[in-house]
Every structure is written in C-alpha cells, then in structure tokens.
Computed example of a mutant assay.
Amino acid sequence: MAEAAAITWALELAVIEMFEHICIESDAKVYVNALAATIDDCLWKIRALISMSLKLSS
C-alpha cells in the first residue's frame, strides 16, 4: 500500500510540474503488474490507487 501511494503521489507531482515523459521504477511487482493489467484483475486493496495512477498517466 505504501509503495502504491508513493507512486500515485509521484505521478501527481509529475502532472503538477507538467512533465511530458517520466519513468517509474519500483520493486512492488504487484503494483507494476496491476498497472499493465485490466483494473478488474488487480487486488481490491490497491484498485483505487491503480485507477488514480492510470488517470494521471494519461
């Protein structure tokens, strides 16, 4: 959960700073895999953070 929140926060900062290209590295395999999968396939505990991260990254 903490890693998911940190990634979402970093994406929020990237949007505020208007960065066009970013690279996210993480050792939270569950979160990284969930970003690449469909929202229905991810764990319910991080589903809201995944959804927010995907919206911020688009």
Rank of each mutant, 00 (worst) to 15 (best):
A37M: 10
D41H: 03
C42A: 14
H21A: 08
I7N: 00
E12K: 02
L35M: 13
K45L: 05
T38K: 13
A10C: 15
L13P: 00
E17P: 03
E17L: 09
M18L: 12
I16M: 06
S26I: 01
K29T: 10
D41S: 09
W44S: 05
V15H: 09
L35H: 02
I50F: 04
T8N: 03
C42T: 07
L54R: 06
S58N: 11
L11R: 00
A14C: 12
A14R: 04
A5S: 05
E20Y: 13
M52S: 12
V32M: 03
I7A: 01
S57Q: 10
E3Q: 06
S53E: 05
A2E: 05
E17F: 13
S58K: 02
T8H: 12
K29W: 08
L43D: 15
N33V: 00
Y31W: 14
A48D: 08
A6K: 00
E17G: 14
A36R: 14
S51N: 12
A34M: 01
I24F: 06
R47H: 12
K45H: 09
I16S: 13
V32L: 02
I46T: 06
A28V: 00
I24R: 03
C42V: 10
F19C: 11
E17A: 14
H21E: 08
T38R: 12
F19I: 07
D41Y: 03
I16D: 15
L43E: 07
V15F: 08
W9A: 10
M52I: 10
L43S: 05
F19H: 06
K55Y: 11
A37S: 03
I24L: 13
H21C: 07
V15C: 11
M52A: 08
T38S: 04
S26Y: 00
M52W: 11
A36T: 05
D40A: 14
I7S: 02
M18S: 11
I22G: 01
S26G: 03
L11Y: 04
D40P: 12
L54V: 12
N33Y: 03
A36N: 15
V15W: 15
V32G: 06
V15G: 08
S57R: 10
S26L: 02
N33C: 09
A34V: 00
Y31K: 09
